[in-house]
Protein backbone atom coordinates (compact mmCIF):
# COMPACT_ATOMS: atom_id res chain seq x y z
CA UNK A 1 0.00 0.00 0.00
CA UNK A 2 1.27 3.47 -0.85
CA UNK A 3 2.22 5.44 2.31
CA UNK A 4 0.19 8.57 3.05
CA UNK A 5 1.91 11.94 3.16
CA UNK A 6 0.93 12.31 6.82
CA UNK A 7 3.06 9.27 7.63
CA UNK A 8 6.18 11.14 6.52
CA UNK A 9 7.87 12.90 9.49
CA UNK A 10 6.78 16.54 9.65
CA UNK A 11 10.24 18.00 9.52
CA UNK A 12 10.27 19.05 5.87
CA UNK A 13 7.64 21.17 4.21
CA UNK A 14 6.13 20.19 0.84
CA UNK A 15 6.36 23.84 -0.18
CA UNK A 16 9.14 24.50 -2.71
CA UNK A 17 9.34 27.79 -4.54
CA UNK A 18 10.34 27.59 -8.21
CA UNK A 19 9.46 29.71 -11.23
CA UNK A 20 7.01 27.02 -12.36
CA UNK A 21 5.37 27.00 -8.93
CA UNK A 22 5.03 30.81 -9.04
CA UNK A 23 3.40 30.61 -12.49
CA UNK A 24 0.96 27.93 -11.26
CA UNK A 25 0.09 30.16 -8.31
CA UNK A 26 -0.54 33.09 -10.69
CA UNK A 27 -2.76 30.89 -12.87
CA UNK A 28 -4.77 29.89 -9.80
CA UNK A 29 -5.27 33.54 -8.81
CA UNK A 30 -6.67 34.16 -12.32
CA UNK A 31 -8.89 31.07 -11.99
CA UNK A 32 -10.15 32.16 -8.54
CA UNK A 33 -11.06 35.59 -9.94
CA UNK A 34 -12.92 33.95 -12.84
CA UNK A 35 -14.74 31.51 -10.53
CA UNK A 36 -15.94 34.38 -8.36
CA UNK A 37 -17.03 36.37 -11.40
CA UNK A 38 -19.21 33.63 -12.85
CA UNK A 39 -20.66 32.63 -9.47
CA UNK A 40 -22.28 36.05 -9.01
CA UNK A 41 -24.69 35.92 -12.00
CA UNK A 42 -25.97 39.50 -11.67
CA UNK A 43 -23.04 40.58 -13.90
CA UNK A 44 -25.01 39.38 -16.96
CA UNK A 45 -27.56 42.18 -16.50
CA UNK A 46 -24.83 44.75 -15.94
CA UNK A 47 -23.06 43.57 -19.08
CA UNK A 48 -26.23 43.87 -21.19
CA UNK A 49 -27.73 47.07 -19.80
CA UNK A 50 -24.86 49.33 -18.72
CA UNK A 51 -23.12 49.61 -22.15
CA UNK A 52 -26.18 51.21 -23.73
CA UNK A 53 -27.58 53.25 -20.83
CA UNK A 54 -24.59 55.49 -20.14
CA UNK A 55 -23.78 56.64 -23.72
CA UNK A 56 -27.47 57.00 -24.62
CA UNK A 57 -27.84 60.25 -22.66
CA UNK A 58 -25.00 61.84 -24.65
CA UNK A 59 -26.24 60.45 -27.96
CA UNK A 60 -29.76 61.78 -27.46
CA UNK A 61 -28.37 65.19 -26.37
CA UNK A 62 -26.21 65.21 -29.50
CA UNK A 63 -29.25 64.44 -31.68
CA UNK A 64 -31.13 67.33 -30.09
CA UNK A 65 -28.19 69.71 -30.61
CA UNK A 66 -27.72 68.73 -34.25
CA UNK A 67 -31.32 69.82 -34.93
CA UNK A 68 -34.26 67.96 -36.45
CA UNK A 69 -32.72 68.14 -39.95
CA UNK A 70 -29.17 67.39 -38.75
CA UNK A 71 -27.99 70.86 -39.76
CA UNK A 72 -25.73 71.10 -36.71
CA UNK A 73 -23.64 68.17 -37.93
CA UNK A 74 -21.61 70.44 -40.17
CA UNK A 75 -20.42 72.36 -37.13
CA UNK A 76 -19.55 69.08 -35.42
CA UNK A 77 -17.56 68.01 -38.49
CA UNK A 78 -15.58 71.28 -38.33
CA UNK A 79 -14.51 70.77 -34.72
CA UNK A 80 -14.39 66.96 -34.38
CA UNK A 81 -13.26 65.97 -37.91
CA UNK A 82 -16.13 63.51 -38.38
CA UNK A 83 -19.88 63.60 -38.82
CA UNK A 84 -20.23 60.20 -37.14
CA UNK A 85 -21.14 61.65 -33.73
CA UNK A 86 -22.59 58.29 -32.70
CA UNK A 87 -19.29 56.45 -33.15
CA UNK A 88 -17.45 59.44 -31.69
CA UNK A 89 -19.47 59.26 -28.46
CA UNK A 90 -19.45 55.46 -28.26
CA UNK A 91 -15.62 55.29 -28.46
CA UNK A 92 -15.22 58.04 -25.84
CA UNK A 93 -17.71 56.57 -23.40
CA UNK A 94 -16.34 53.05 -23.86
CA UNK A 95 -12.85 54.19 -22.83
CA UNK A 96 -14.35 56.05 -19.86
CA UNK A 97 -16.27 52.94 -18.80
CA UNK A 98 -13.15 50.82 -19.26
CA UNK A 99 -11.12 53.11 -16.98
CA UNK A 100 -14.03 53.19 -14.54
CA UNK A 101 -14.30 49.39 -14.48
CA UNK A 102 -10.55 49.08 -13.82
CA UNK A 103 -10.79 51.55 -10.94
CA UNK A 104 -13.61 49.61 -9.35
CA UNK A 105 -12.48 46.07 -10.12
CA UNK A 106 -8.67 46.09 -10.23
CA UNK A 107 -8.42 49.07 -7.86
CA UNK A 108 -10.63 47.39 -5.31
CA UNK A 109 -9.26 43.86 -5.79
CA UNK A 110 -7.09 43.87 -2.68
CA UNK A 111 -9.65 45.83 -0.71
CA UNK A 112 -12.25 43.20 -1.65
CA UNK A 113 -9.96 40.46 -0.33
CA UNK A 114 -9.40 42.50 2.81
CA UNK A 115 -13.14 42.91 3.42
CA UNK A 116 -13.79 39.25 2.63
CA UNK A 117 -11.15 38.31 5.21
CA UNK A 118 -9.00 36.35 2.76
CA UNK A 119 -6.16 38.81 2.13
CA UNK A 120 -4.19 37.61 5.16
CA UNK A 121 -4.56 33.92 4.30
CA UNK A 122 -3.27 34.68 0.80
CA UNK A 123 -0.35 36.69 2.15
CA UNK A 124 0.58 33.90 4.55
CA UNK A 125 1.64 31.84 1.54
CA UNK A 126 5.06 32.12 -0.14
CA UNK A 127 3.52 33.36 -3.42
CA UNK A 128 4.87 36.69 -4.74
CA UNK A 129 2.39 39.21 -3.39
CA UNK A 130 2.17 41.28 -6.57
CA UNK A 131 0.72 38.16 -8.25
CA UNK A 132 -2.50 38.71 -6.30
CA UNK A 133 -2.93 42.07 -8.01
CA UNK A 134 -1.65 41.03 -11.43
CA UNK A 135 -3.87 37.93 -11.39
CA UNK A 136 -7.01 40.04 -11.29
CA UNK A 137 -6.18 41.77 -14.57
CA UNK A 138 -6.57 39.00 -17.21
CA UNK A 139 -10.17 38.32 -16.16
CA UNK A 140 -10.91 42.04 -16.24
CA UNK A 141 -9.43 42.31 -19.76
CA UNK A 142 -11.69 39.48 -20.95
CA UNK A 143 -14.74 41.05 -19.28
CA UNK A 144 -13.95 44.41 -20.87
CA UNK A 145 -13.50 42.89 -24.34
CA UNK A 146 -16.90 41.21 -23.99
CA UNK A 147 -18.29 44.55 -22.79
CA UNK A 148 -16.92 46.32 -25.90
CA UNK A 149 -18.36 43.68 -28.24
CA UNK A 150 -21.78 43.86 -26.51
CA UNK A 151 -21.71 47.68 -26.73
CA UNK A 152 -20.96 47.67 -30.44
CA UNK A 153 -23.65 45.08 -31.16
CA UNK A 154 -26.27 46.99 -29.17
CA UNK A 155 -25.46 50.34 -30.77
CA UNK A 156 -25.50 48.80 -34.23
CA UNK A 157 -28.88 47.25 -33.49
CA UNK A 158 -30.64 50.13 -31.73
CA UNK A 159 -28.93 53.25 -33.15
CA UNK A 160 -27.60 52.03 -36.50
CA UNK A 161 -23.95 52.59 -35.53
CA UNK A 162 -21.52 52.05 -38.42
CA UNK A 163 -17.71 51.95 -38.25
CA UNK A 164 -15.08 52.60 -40.85
CA UNK A 165 -12.34 50.75 -38.98
CA UNK A 166 -8.80 49.57 -39.54
CA UNK A 167 -8.87 46.41 -37.40
CA UNK A 168 -5.08 46.14 -37.06
CA UNK A 169 -4.87 49.74 -35.82
CA UNK A 170 -7.74 49.10 -33.42
CA UNK A 171 -6.02 46.01 -32.04
CA UNK A 172 -2.77 47.96 -31.57
CA UNK A 173 -4.64 50.73 -29.74
CA UNK A 174 -6.25 48.20 -27.37
CA UNK A 175 -2.90 46.48 -26.69
CA UNK A 176 -1.03 49.76 -26.17
CA UNK A 177 -3.77 50.93 -23.77
CA UNK A 178 -3.51 47.97 -21.40
CA UNK A 179 -0.26 48.87 -19.54
CA UNK A 180 -1.24 52.40 -18.60
CA UNK A 181 -4.88 51.64 -17.73
CA UNK A 182 -3.92 48.68 -15.54
CA UNK A 183 -0.87 50.49 -14.14
CA UNK A 184 -3.21 53.25 -12.92
CA UNK A 185 -5.42 50.49 -11.48
CA UNK A 186 -2.43 49.05 -9.55
CA UNK A 187 -1.54 52.46 -8.10
CA UNK A 188 -5.16 52.87 -7.16
CA UNK A 189 -5.32 49.41 -5.53
CA UNK A 190 -2.33 50.32 -3.38
CA UNK A 191 -3.87 53.62 -2.32
CA UNK A 192 -7.15 51.90 -1.49
CA UNK A 193 -5.52 49.29 0.71
CA UNK A 194 -3.64 52.01 2.60
CA UNK A 195 -6.57 54.41 2.95
CA UNK A 196 -9.22 51.66 3.35
CA UNK A 197 -11.74 53.98 1.68
CA UNK A 198 -11.49 55.25 -1.84
CA UNK A 199 -14.92 56.37 -3.03
CA UNK A 200 -13.71 59.98 -3.22
CA UNK A 201 -10.59 59.03 -5.18
CA UNK A 202 -12.64 57.04 -7.69
CA UNK A 203 -14.92 60.04 -8.24
CA UNK A 204 -11.90 62.29 -8.69
CA UNK A 205 -10.14 60.08 -11.26
CA UNK A 206 -13.22 59.32 -13.32
CA UNK A 207 -14.25 62.99 -13.08
CA UNK A 208 -10.84 64.01 -14.48
CA UNK A 209 -11.19 61.53 -17.32
CA UNK A 210 -14.75 62.66 -18.04
CA UNK A 211 -13.88 66.36 -18.21
CA UNK A 212 -10.34 66.44 -19.61
CA UNK A 213 -10.18 63.48 -21.99
CA UNK A 214 -12.94 64.53 -24.36
CA UNK A 215 -15.17 61.52 -24.07
CA UNK A 216 -18.03 63.27 -25.92
CA UNK A 217 -16.42 66.41 -27.35
CA UNK A 218 -13.18 67.37 -29.11
CA UNK A 219 -10.36 68.70 -26.93
CA UNK A 220 -10.29 71.89 -29.02
CA UNK A 221 -13.41 73.19 -27.26
CA UNK A 222 -11.51 73.32 -23.97
CA UNK A 223 -9.18 76.16 -22.84
CA UNK A 224 -5.52 75.73 -23.81
CA UNK A 225 -4.36 74.84 -20.27
CA UNK A 226 -6.94 72.05 -20.12
CA UNK A 227 -5.82 70.72 -23.50
CA UNK A 228 -2.19 70.66 -22.30
CA UNK A 229 -3.16 68.81 -19.13
CA UNK A 230 -5.28 66.33 -21.10
CA UNK A 231 -2.24 65.29 -23.13
CA UNK A 232 -0.76 63.79 -19.94
CA UNK A 233 -3.76 61.55 -19.33
CA UNK A 234 -3.57 58.15 -21.08
CA UNK A 235 -7.35 57.97 -21.75
CA UNK A 236 -7.03 61.11 -23.95
CA UNK A 237 -4.56 59.29 -26.19
CA UNK A 238 -6.59 56.08 -26.18
CA UNK A 239 -9.77 57.92 -27.18
CA UNK A 240 -8.04 59.91 -29.91
CA UNK A 241 -6.24 56.89 -31.38
CA UNK A 242 -9.33 54.71 -30.97
CA UNK A 243 -11.51 57.18 -32.86
CA UNK A 244 -8.98 57.49 -35.65
CA UNK A 245 -8.70 53.68 -35.98
CA UNK A 246 -12.42 52.96 -35.71
CA UNK A 247 -14.04 55.90 -37.52
CA UNK A 248 -11.54 56.98 -40.18
CA UNK A 249 -9.68 53.66 -40.78
CA UNK A 250 -6.36 55.30 -39.89
CA UNK A 251 -3.40 52.96 -40.61
CA UNK A 252 -0.97 52.08 -37.78
CA UNK A 253 1.63 54.49 -39.14
CA UNK A 254 -0.77 57.41 -38.65
CA UNK A 255 -1.19 56.48 -35.00
CA UNK A 256 2.42 55.78 -34.10
CA UNK A 257 2.88 59.04 -32.14
CA UNK A 258 -0.04 58.30 -29.81
CA UNK A 259 0.83 54.58 -29.59
CA UNK A 260 4.42 55.33 -28.61
CA UNK A 261 3.30 57.83 -25.99
CA UNK A 262 0.83 55.26 -24.64
CA UNK A 263 3.59 52.68 -24.29
CA UNK A 264 5.78 55.19 -22.45
CA UNK A 265 2.88 56.12 -20.16
CA UNK A 266 2.26 52.38 -19.70
CA UNK A 267 5.86 51.76 -18.58
CA UNK A 268 5.63 54.70 -16.20
CA UNK A 269 2.32 53.64 -14.66
CA UNK A 270 3.27 49.96 -14.35
CA UNK A 271 6.52 50.85 -12.57
CA UNK A 272 4.68 53.38 -10.38
CA UNK A 273 2.02 50.74 -9.68
CA UNK A 274 4.62 48.23 -8.56
CA UNK A 275 6.46 50.78 -6.40
CA UNK A 276 3.19 51.95 -4.82
CA UNK A 277 2.24 48.34 -4.11
CA UNK A 278 5.64 47.58 -2.53
CA UNK A 279 5.42 50.71 -0.39
CA UNK A 280 1.88 49.87 0.69
CA UNK A 281 2.83 46.25 1.48
CA UNK A 282 5.66 47.38 3.77
CA UNK A 283 3.52 50.06 5.39
CA UNK A 284 0.67 47.62 6.06
CA UNK A 285 3.12 45.12 7.52
CA UNK A 286 4.52 47.78 9.88
CA UNK A 287 1.15 49.15 10.90
CA UNK A 288 -0.66 45.84 11.06
CA UNK A 289 -3.39 46.96 8.69
CA UNK A 290 -3.31 43.98 6.28
CA UNK A 291 -6.38 42.36 7.76
CA UNK A 292 -8.21 45.45 8.98
CA UNK A 293 -11.37 46.69 7.34
Amino acid sequence: MEPTLSAVPASQSLSHTTLGAELRAFRMVVWREWAHFIRYPSWIFALLIWPIIFPSTYILSARALSGPDGSGLGRFLQTAGTENFLGYIVIGTLVWMWQNTILWNVGFALRGEQMRGTLESNWLSPTWRFSFLLGVSPVQVIIMLVFIVVSILEFSLFFGLRFNANLLSLLLVVLASLPSLYGIGFVFASLVIAAREAGTLVQLVRGLVMIFCGITYPLSVMPIWMQSFAEWLPPTLIIRAGRAAALTAAPPAALQGDLLKLLLFGAFWLITGYLAFSFMERRASRRGTVGQF
Partner: peptide, 9 residues
Protein backbone atom coordinates in the same frame (compact mmCIF):
# COMPACT_ATOMS: atom_id res chain seq x y z
CA UNK B 1 -6.14 27.11 -4.74
CA UNK B 2 -4.07 27.35 -1.57
CA UNK B 3 -1.96 24.30 -2.52
CA UNK B 4 -0.87 26.26 -5.60
CA UNK B 5 -0.16 29.35 -3.49
CA UNK B 6 2.00 27.21 -1.20
CA UNK B 7 3.95 26.00 -4.27
CA UNK B 8 3.14 22.35 -3.73
CA UNK B 9 3.72 20.26 -6.89
Amino acid sequence: YFAALYHIP
